[in-house]
């Protein structure tokens, strides 16, 4: 794996986390992973990822944080 970038959106006001994520997707390289941390499930982002050739997994941690791992499909 080329590496991992992390966006911690838990203390950011919407749509800041989505803005940062979209900006990061523009420069995401093959094999690189983007880890997004949020308190909610970002359904609009999921739709964007599905429609644009990215794969993702979402896992809810014990503290309620959703950890979304994104990479190029």
């Amino acid at each position: 794996m080329a590496g991992q970038r992390v966006i911690d959106g838990r203390d950011l006001l919407p749509p800041e986390p989505l803005e940062l994520t979209l900006a990061a997707l523009d420069t995401l390289e093959s094999g690189e992973e983007l880890l997004l941390l949020l308190h909610c499930e970002p359904h609009p982002l999921y739709a964007i990822l599905k429609n644009n050739g990215y794969r993702y997994t979402s896992e809810q941690r014990e503290d309620g944080t959703n950890a979304i791992r994104i990479s190029k499909a």
Partner: peptide, 11 residues
């Protein structure tokens, strides 16, 4: 901007 992204989910 994000020219290749689709935002189909929102009406």
């Amino acid at each position: 901007m994000h020219p290749n992204l689709s935002f189909e989910q929102a009406p």
